[in-house]
Nucleic acid binder design. Structure first.
Length: 363
DNA sequence: AAGTTACCCAACCGCCGGATT
DNA sequence: GAATCCGGCGGTTGGGTAACT
């Protein structure tokens, strides 16, 4: 790669950021914006590389960050988007106001992945573990390579995936929308609304190329998302794809999903502790993703997804400046909606003051 | 109480692609 | 067109800490 100009380089600091460094960075960006990231550390008086500054800002200091535990809606959305986009964390995070790709990625790796496995779903493919393992075994490949599903199955025994686990939503949740019919028909090999094809459908949106692979697939997604035992979803073909809402801005989706850039209240189910594992998901069923209820007429294509993403990009900074800043104070400030001292209570008194008023100018 | 394990998450690393020179 | 610069992304690591023995 390109070499940097300059001779003897100053040894750059690494590791965790101190409150003083955060303060410097925030003050600098508040006054001047970040501009060229590579020049930020110099101008801000930091012994960090620009990349590190950028990361710190994006993942931690940005005023619009939500922080706190993920809500059920967010979790559902992440799973859904991952089934379509794969590990495109930045794209997934773009649909979640106030969340960073790093945060989403961590949440996926530490929680959702595990949860899906427990339910007999291969997190990589969003298909039942048994199905993935069978498919892998059927094809010829290097014997030393095992899929996630195979490893899981070999460790837990080749038990069939839980019937209800074939759904992203557990039985109780599903039943709230689909009733007994869907629950009864949700078996891996069975027919019916939530049957075979549902997860295949979601992975039908190619993870590698982000292209739709077929109508049946999308139709299956419809089946999955609606958990319906009747209607077009149960037929397994013909209906137009209904995978993602045909919306063109984050705020649209947010409102549809019951989220708002400004709605940064902590989901109490997980507690305020950001480290707190969401261990009691089944306690509440705010399973309300209105766009999941959209019919085939609201189908969106991959182009829509791109358009959607582009619109989001346009909105990002305005969201940061207006919704984000106006509604949320930086993490140091306990008065913030998601107020959370990032250095722990023992350091709350640490005198960290940034030029909050100037933040409004950094665009 | 002390030691060990498991988990979370902030930060780093390396690669890539676009823009500029 | 090549070299360089830069921002962005996804994968990985390691420190801190809660949970467990």
């Amino acid at each position: 790669m390109a070499k940097r100009a300059g001779g003897a380089r100053k040894k750059l600091r690494r590791g965790l950021w101190s409150p003083e460094e955060d303060e410097k960075l925030m003050n600098h960006i508040a006054k001047y914006g970040h501009g060229c990231w590579s020049s930020v550390p110099k101008l801000a008086g930091l012994e960090r590389c620009g990349k590190s500054c950028r990361l710190r800002w994006i993942n931690y200091l940005r005023p619009d960050l939500k922080r706190g535990a993920f809500s059920q809606e967010e979790e559902d959305l992440i799973i859904h988007l991952h089934s379509m986009l794969g590990n495109k964390w930045s794209q997934i995070a773009a649909q979640l106001p106030g969340r960073t790709d790093n945060e989403v990625k961590n949440f996926w790796n530490s929680y959702i992945k595990k949860k899906l496995r427990q339910r007999g779903i291969d997190p990589a493919t969003h298909k039942p573990l048994a199905e993935v393992a069978a498919a892998a075994a059927a094809c010829t490949r290097t014997p030393a390579v095992f899929s996630d599903a195979e490893l899981i199955l070999s460790s837990i025994g080749a038990q069939p995936p839980l019937t209800e686990s074939y759904m992203y939503y557990d039985g109780s949740r599903c039943s709230t929308e689909c009733g007994a019919t869907a629950s009864a028909s949700a078996g891996v090999g069975g027919g019916g609304g939530c049957s075979d094809g549902s997860l295949t459908s979601l992975s039908g949106y190619s993870q590698a190329t982000a292209e739709f692979t077929g109508g049946y697939v999308a139709d299956g997604a419809h089946a999955l998302l609606h958990c319906g035992g009747a209607g077009p979803a149960s037929s397994g073909g013909g209906a137009p794809p209904a995978v993602i809402p045909s919306v063109s801005s984050s705020s649209t989706l947010n409102s549809m999903a019951g989220l708002s850039p400004a709605a940064t209240t902590t989901d109490e189910r997980y507690g305020n502790n950001s480290r707190g594992s969401p261990t009691n998901h089944d306690g509440h069923h705010h399973h309300h993703l209105p766009w999941l209820e959209l019919g085939p007429s609201t189908a969106a294509s991959a182009a829509d997804v791109d358009h959607y993403g582009a619109a989001l990009d346009e909105l990002k900074w305005s969201d940061y400046v207006f919704d984000g800043y106006n509604n949320q104070l930086p993490p140091y400030n306990h008065g913030g909606i998601q107020g959370q001292c990032i250095y722990g209570d023992s350091k709350v008194d640490t005198a960290v003051h940034f030029d909050a008023h100037a933040l409004g100018n950094w665009c």
